[in-house]
Nucleic acid binder design. Structure first.
Lengths: 342, 342
DNA sequence: GAATCGTCTCAAACCGCTTTGGATAACGCA
DNA sequence: TGCGTTATCCAAAGCGGTTTGAGACGATTC
């Protein structure tokens, strides 16, 4: 059942039927109702492909996911972000198209998305310092929103980010207030912008108390369980091990916990741990009572908001670049306590 | 730059240019090369929306993701499957469109995808017993491949699955061979088909040795860390606790481990654990040496294969339903050992 | 030299919708 | 009565490709 058939059945022209269904004013209300009813009765749904060609809009948003020679992006955090963004798209009748491509094809993928007209805009994931995607997208004129920020980019651009620096500064200060002075940082990869900011927050807090950071207490790696284990293990076998550890994610923290408990230490008593909690649906930080003390910010909500921002940018190209900084909350769990008496 | 412009520039008709670019035989080779060169030089990329309308194909595949009143599907396992499928789509110039919808809208989403022509086929995730999506998709005539199987569905349909029954039977037998007789099962939700099959495998192995299953040793819940913890905790505080535990996923196992270690038990000595390992990119089961003894089957590879199957079904609608059963391998890690002497 | 046959190219129809630019009829008002 | 408005509706021209059916041309065959 297409528009023409429906129009014939109604004894109207396709024009009128189209206008009736799309709420244009130049059609009689009774006619409109008649059309609406017939559309429902005959189960008419306009062909998306035709709409897209006729309107020149793709009604779709792209997410380009490079696969992993350098860094694996397909992680649970990413999944939750996508889920959040997807909710927004569904509500607005947009399609979400994911392109999973080898990372050397990333640039050509963006160019293709634009020139072939597959999408109206994209979300940029996991920005790095001086991220080349930002000038690229500006050059080709594809609307975009960055999830995070890219230090080093001069021109303003659209982004939505969590205040990672502040979050880690607060977390570090929280441990300092409990008397900890040797605090380890199990960070993500530090070519990632968010990881740089987290380290900055950590360092700011230390220097605020006149503490000289110890490089042996700062690690940077993928946010996996195994990497978390390895980093924590190394720190804990130092001559003077840390009494507190900051972990970059719930998953890293799983590894940190394994290292800690493997040495027979009790979390919250012998050693304090604070994590950054993205509030993942499949990795809840406890139920009512949080397991870990954490800086929490829902990445799923971030996905929803970033998608809304992008749809707005697409609808109103004239407006200047939007920017939004979310604050993480510091929630107290059972994994922190005063520094143990020697 | 569109087809007409390019044709004008070349002094050819759009017909010929289109045919030259699409490799039709009725065009002179020298002409074709001239066209190809011009297309590259002018950076011509045919508009996807126009192609889709003209050919009547969407060149896209859908994945419908219901969100969570009943059961959260956005988990790391799902993410890796999607990544694998996405690789296949990219290689074949198909788009992957994800629809994240409230689960009460699932049926109407599938109907819409079909009648609006957004996709050429879909992958069905997380099948349940008597899954209603299978008859629905058959009814509306949308090609599909199921990741998993749906017990209770009479008519044959396309699927790709792991032999979950066999995997869990082997894992159970492995523990039995080590002398364990009280073996706990931390299963996924048992309205999910794979969870039913896993339990069947577990029960088959037990009854093969004449062991009567103890309901207190069988739990069924979401495959989250917290649920794994809770289930293991409950089993371990029984009057006669298990000496071996099967866990449904890496994530569940994180919780099981927390419960075990929280009681001061040593994995592999005091208690043996076998997990099902989906070989997730962000949740590797150790590096060279596996941490957990596991039944392993890469869900990412499953995604690649399921996508290939679907593209094949789309291209050759006539062929009968394809079905493929993958076997999991049993890999020995450090989490299992002989039953401890009392 | 005419008929036949490939080879190469093109004009035009088509995919299913939107949207521009009228056309028609009813209406209001001087 | 005459004429500008207003309210409805429609024909036709896109959108940017693919595909059908046919024409032009040179080479081959009889």
């Amino acid at each position: 059942m297409n528009l023409k058939e429906l129009a014939t059945k109604l004894g109207l022209s396709p024009t009128t039927v189209s206008r009736a269904l799309n709420g244009y004013p130049e059609v009689n209300e009774t006619t409109r109702e008649r059309v609406m009813a017939a559309a429902k009765r005959h189960n008419y749904h306009p062909n998306t492909r035709a709409i897209r060609l006729a309107t020149g809009r793709a009604m779709a948003v792209g997410h380009v996911i490079p696969i992993a020679t350098r860094h694996e992006i397909v992680n649970p955090v990413f999944a939750d972000f996508i889920a959040g963004a997807g909710e927004t798209y569904s509500r607005n009748d947009y399609d979400m198209v994911l392109s999973v491509v080898p990372d050397e094809d990333e640039e050509s993928t963006y160019r293709g998305l634009k020139s072939k007209g597959n999408v109206d805009g994209v979300i940029v994931h996991a920005p790095r310092m001086n991220d080349p995607r930002i000038p690229l997208l500006r050059e080709i004129g594809l609307p975009f929103v960055v999830h995070g920020r890219a230090t080093g980019t001069a021109e303003p651009y659209c982004w939505l980010d969590v205040n990672n620096r502040r979050a880690f500064q607060r977390a570090t200060e929280f441990l300092l207030d409990l008397g900890h002075t040797r605090i380890g940082l199990v960070n993500g990869l530090e070519f990632m912008d968010f990881a740089i900011r987290r380290r900055t927050g950590y360092l700011d807090a230390l220097s605020g108390r006149g503490i000289v950071p110890d490089p042996a207490l700062m690690s940077s790696d993928e946010m996996t369980e195994v990497a978390g284990y390895r980093a924590a293990r190394a720190m804990l076998s130092l001559p003077i091990p840390p009494t507190g550890i900051l972990a970059a994610s719930m998953i890293s923290a799983m590894g940190v916990r394994r290292a800690v408990e493997g040495l027979g230490l009790v979390i919250g008593r012998d050693i304090s741990i604070i994590i950054h909690d993205d509030d993942l649906s499949y990795m809840k930080n406890g139920e009512d009572v949080p397991i870990f003390t954490a800086t929490r910010s829902s990445v799923r909500e971030a996905g929803r908001l970033a998608a809304e921002m992008l749809l707005d940018v697409i609808a109103n190209p004239g407006n200047g670049p939007q920017q939004r900084l979310l604050e993480a909350e510091l929630i107290i769990g059972q994994s922190t306590g005063p520094v143990p008496k020697a």
